[in-house]
Amino acid sequence: MTRPEHAPDDHPAIPARRIGVLIANLGTPDATDYWSMRRYLNEFLSDERVIDLPRWKWQPILQGIILTKRPFSSGANYRSIWNNEANESPLMTITKQQVAGLRERATALWGDRVMVDYCMRYGNPSTPSVVDRMVKAGCDRILFLPLYPQYAGATSATANDQFFRALMQQKWQPAARTVAPYFARPDYIEALAGSVTRALGGAVPRKLVASYHGMPKRYLTEGDPYHCHCQQTSRLLGARLGWDSDVIDTSFQSVFGKEEWLRPYTVEHVADLARRGITEIAVISPAFSADCVETLEEVQGEIREAFMHAGGKEFTYIPCLNAEPSHLDVLTSIIAENLGGWI
């Protein structure tokens, strides 16, 4: 902390100027008990980017019905995968590992000029709290990187919204940049392909199901490009692996409510594959940058069970890229490109 040159003695000290890189993911409850789950779900399901019904219509349903029951079932799902040693969700554990790796790479490239930190859209650490910490540490420029390869209003856009709201709270507002979706980057596709090859030992499966988080079909017709981004990721992955076009199927999971969502639904699709005699499949989740409740509990629980119950014999889950060196290399390249002109 120093005073500007030629400033009077009573001028407040300011920190040395730095560049911030803020990594953002969806979020996680602080614990699995009813009230922790209720707080988390209330914040998540009150987001109008996620549920875009009028508040007067949605909030009574959310507060009166959903948040009375859902914290119990969601808490049970989280307890089944909880990192008890660290007392946190796997998403939190993996995000910390990712950021540690990115900090190491950033230090090697830029020394102490770049500060790397992370936040969550829902839960802790909150986006406003981390933005405030970065500003107080001297960051007068912040690059914001939501960890969503494919853009969606309910993921990338709401993370950006929260980042911009956090900037509104700052007296001395830093310059800001956000990162574009990276669903088609060759190095990202290469990292995905590498994870498939490692998991399957180089074999070509009868069927690889690329299961992406779902969204209401209506969002697609209203202009959200998510569906197209997912399809392109699957197509590029298959091309990179050199497989026939019918080996990879794209499907969507985590359907919520009565509205029609993007199809096919993964839980129905894998059961249909088994009934058609395709009894050995692999599943990958390219929309998730880190394994979480949707992959560790839903894919390896509900979706696996649906496949096996319908006659499936072998179900292989291919983990997310997580803190794999190839993934961290992709993210480091994205960061370096987006810091152009700043450093």
Rank of each mutant, 00 (worst) to 15 (best):
M1T: 13
R3H: 12
P4C: 12
H6L: 15
D9Y: 15
I14D: 15
G20L: 06
I23D: 00
I23G: 02
I23K: 06
A24C: 10
T28L: 00
D30P: 02
E43F: 05
F44V: 01
S46V: 07
D47L: 12
D47Q: 09
I51P: 02
R55G: 03
W56D: 04
K57H: 14
Q59W: 08
P60W: 05
I61F: 05
G75N: 08
G75C: 12
N77F: 08
R79M: 06
S80P: 04
I81C: 10
N83T: 01
P90E: 02
M92D: 06
K96A: 15
Q97G: 07
Q98D: 03
R103H: 11
R103E: 14
R105Q: 03
A106V: 08
R113H: 14
M115F: 15
R121H: 00
G123Y: 07
N124F: 07
V130T: 13
V135F: 01
V135I: 13
K136E: 15
C139I: 04
R141G: 10
I142A: 08
F144W: 13
P146H: 04
Y148R: 09
Y151E: 07
Y151F: 14
N160E: 13
D161S: 01
F164V: 00
R165S: 12
R165H: 14
A166M: 14
A166P: 08
Q170E: 11
Q173N: 11
A176H: 12
V179H: 11
P181C: 10
A184H: 08
R185K: 14
R185P: 00
E190D: 11
E190V: 01
E190A: 09
L192G: 06
S195F: 02
V196T: 03
P205I: 00
P205G: 02
V209W: 00
V209G: 00
S211L: 01
S211N: 02
H213F: 06
G214M: 08
K217T: 03
Y219S: 07
T221W: 11
D224S: 14
Y226I: 06
Y226P: 03
C230M: 03
C230T: 05
Q231H: 11
T233K: 04
R235I: 00
L236K: 03
G242A: 14
S245K: 12
D246L: 13
T250S: 12
G257M: 02
G257T: 01
E259Q: 15
W261Y: 09
L262Y: 13
V267A: 04
H269E: 02
H269W: 07
A271D: 01
L273A: 02
A274P: 00
R276Q: 09
I281E: 12
I281W: 08
F288E: 00
S289P: 09
A290F: 05
A290I: 05
C292Y: 05
V293F: 10
V293I: 12
L296G: 13
E298G: 09
E298A: 09
G301S: 03
E302V: 04
E302Q: 05
F307C: 06
F307G: 01
G312M: 02
E314T: 09
F315Q: 00
T316H: 08
I318G: 00
C320F: 08
L328W: 09
V330K: 09
L331G: 06
A336Y: 04
E337L: 10
E337R: 14
N338C: 09
N338K: 11
I343S: 14
